[in-house]
């Protein structure tokens, strides 16, 4: 594999040619914020938090998709990017019904963490207060659509790791929602194996363990990467 050198935030970095900017940056200890990206699953490119500036181009590019190239000059933390990231997080809060104080994921939520990281101390946009459902029909898990940010991590985990493809996205635009099978109660799903990978993948408290109470729930997200390494590389990182 040929090696490429590029500059990220002024730091000269070498990376292998097929790596993404995100991989290369992380390898060099540079953190780029992400929400829809999770180790072990394919990239989605939807949350736009990992957008970076690339020298010579006016278009921002998602670090999770964009491959490194020789001589590339990447900026991951400019004032413009910081402001845009803050607006993205604000858009997400305005779009759903996120109430951290009563959420099972309070303290373990990637959206909540992003809000702190981008410096969001209040919402500058209008809350839209959509009417959304909670499905508690599954014996082990539940989904609260009020907390869903449509990152599709559950969809990808179910399809790519478990292979069941119980989840998918239905509807479109602001009417999108994740569904199980034909939008039937999760508990009735004939395809669901109750493996819990969707739960592990979920960045917020949208998919939760039945019986979890406020702020007590951890997702064990690293399990997904553990599974991928075990399955594909036959390496068990315990």
């Amino acid at each position: 594999m040929s090696v490429t050198t590029l500059t990220i935030d002024g730091k000269l970095i070498s990376a292998s040619q097929d790596e993404t900017i995100l991989d290369a940056a992380r390898g060099a200890g540079i953190q780029i914020p992400t929400l829809c990206y999770v180790d072990g699953l394919s990239a989605h490119g939807g949350c736009r938090l990992c957008l970076v500036e690339i020298g010579g181009s006016s278009r921002l590019q998602p670090a999770c998709f964009m491959k490194v190239a020789e001589g590339m000059v990447v900026q991951t933390d400019t004032e413009k990017l910081r402001e845009y990231r803050k607006m993205i997080v604000e858009l997400l809060f305005a779009e759903g019904n996120h109430v951290c104080s009563i959420c099972v994921a309070n303290g373990n939520c990637e959206l909540q963490t992003q809000a702190m990281d981008v410096g969001m101390d209040h919402e500058r946009l209008d809350y839209t207060y959509p009417q959304r459902q909670v499905d508690l029909s599954h014996e082990r898990f539940g989904i609260d659509h009020n907390r869903c940010i449509l990152c599709t991590r559950c969809v990808r985990a179910c399809d790519e790791l478990e292979g069941a493809h119980t989840w998918d996205v239905a509807g479109r635009g602001s009417n999108s929602k994740v569904v199980t099978d034909l939008n039937q109660p999760w508990g009735d799903s004939p395809t669901c194996t109750s493996c819990g990978k969707c739960f592990m993948a979920c960045p917020t408290g949208a998919i939760f363990k039945q019986g979890a109470t406020v702020a007590e729930m951890d997702h064990h997200r690293a399990k997904l990467e553990f599974l991928v390494n075990a399955r594909e590389k036959k390496q068990w990182h315990v």
Binding site: V99, S101, D121, H122, P130
Partner: peptide
């Protein structure tokens, strides 16, 4: 100064908003 989540975000007090 908005003091606490209800003042800042609506929080639990705004729980009824999705009902319209």
């Amino acid at each position: 100064i908005s003091f606490g989540d209800c003042a800042v975000t609506g929080n639990v007090t705004a729980f009824r908003n999705p009902l319209g």
